[in-house]
């Protein structure tokens, strides 16, 4: 089911954040992803859209799922893919980020997919990239992870008819989560009227309400009658020290178990960006239960990343938006 793309929707040159995207821009990516979903189910899982294009995956942080799905997405679009694992590359020998970029440009890459531990790193690459190079943010510090947020929106849309009637709960380490920030922007742009975030105050950034969410102190209160529950991954290093006393205490208050999930609408979706910590932020029974769409998110991630790549690299020259 393809909706016609409105003529005023300019394709993106880069995708750095969901903050500031327009509703039609997001919808056009989701629509395109919808058309790519069957590709993965075919015997020959390839379309020739990006034949002859070179995509570089530049990952300064370890990643399995995101890097693999970006790689698969590029390959299914018939692009040539280079994976630069920075643990073994010259940045370890003191090369600056700018020199890395210039060298990759000298190899005539068309698209850079970048993950980096510092917030703003993707914006940095986009600001300094040659005019023909597009940058996709695969996660920068705590700032943004836009393709994750878009695949989450895609997954929600496949199950829920109307964003403007939804109540969404985000529970977990919002403070350190680029995923949560990108989800919040995307949900707001798509018109979700009630976004509730739940976390101990050590894991909530100040003034989070200014992003358009409501802080609800107790998970039980937040879950009541909600349509979507997004649990966030609790990084190992947050379980020690002063963010939290223990993972046990975290699970007792903020873990999503079957009893708590029963407070949500019976058809509520359970989502998680992965990888999950079983029985830390989510009970195994819930992660594997009928309401969980966690693995569907992974599958959808390939189609959504194909859509973003196709749109960014398929744009006509000069026809682009500043975002």
């Amino acid at each position: 089911m393809m909706r016609p793309t409105p003529p005023d929707v300019l394709p993106l040159r880069h995708l750095l954040t969901t903050d500031g995207l327009s509703r039609p821009q997001i919808l056009s990516i989701l629509d395109l992803a919808e058309s790519f979903l069957p590709v993965g189910a075919r015997a020959v899982k390839k379309v020739p859209l990006l034949r002859g294009k070179t995509v570089v995956n530049l990952f300064f942080e370890p990643s399995t799922r995101t890097r693999m799905t970006f790689e698969l997405a590029a390959k299914r679009l018939s692009a040539d893919v280079l994976n630069l694992d920075v643990a073994h590359s010259s940045t370890r020998k003191g090369e600056t980020l700018l020199d890395t970029l210039r060298n990759l440009e000298a190899m005539q890459m068309d698209m850079l997919v970048v993950r980096h531990a510092e917030s703003g790193a993707a914006d940095f690459f986009a600001r300094h990239a040659a005019p023909h190079v597009s940058v996709l943010n695969a996660g920068d510090g705590r700032h943004a992870h836009p393709t994750q947020a878009l695949l989450d929106m895609f997954t929600i849309r496949r199950h829920k008819a109307d964003f403007t009637a939804l109540t969404v709960v985000i529970v977990g380490d919002v403070a350190h989560s680029r995923v949560a920030r990108s989800q919040i922007h995307a949900l707001r742009i798509l018109g979700v009227p009630d976004i509730r975030v739940v976390a101990p105050r050590t894991l909530l950034p100040v003034d989070i309400e200014t992003l358009g969410v409501r802080v609800v102190p107790h998970l039980e209160t937040a879950l009541r009658d909600c349509d979507v529950v997004i649990t966030l991954r609790l990084q190992r290093e947050r379980m020690q020290g002063t963010f939290l006393p223990s993972e046990g205490e975290y699970f007792r208050h903020y873990g999503l178990d079957a009893a708590r999930l029963a407070l949500a609408r019976p058809d509520a979706l359970v989502m998680h960006p992965g990888p999950i910590n079983r029985n830390v932020e989510i009970a195994s029974a819930v992660a594997d239960g009928p309401q969980s769409v966690i693995l569907e998110q992974v599958t959808n991630g390939i189609a959504v990343r194909m859509a973003v790549m196709a749109q960014v690299l398929g744009r006509a020259p000069g026809q682009e938006s500043a975002a």
């Binding site: 917030s119 703003g120 705590r142 700032h143 950034p205 003034d207």
Partner: peptide
């Protein structure tokens, strides 16, 4: 600075 901007940009903040 710790505030709405550092929250939006995900920058490590100083209150």
């Amino acid at each position: 600075h710790e505030g709405a901007t550092s929250t939006r940009l995900g920058l490590p903040a100083i209150p």
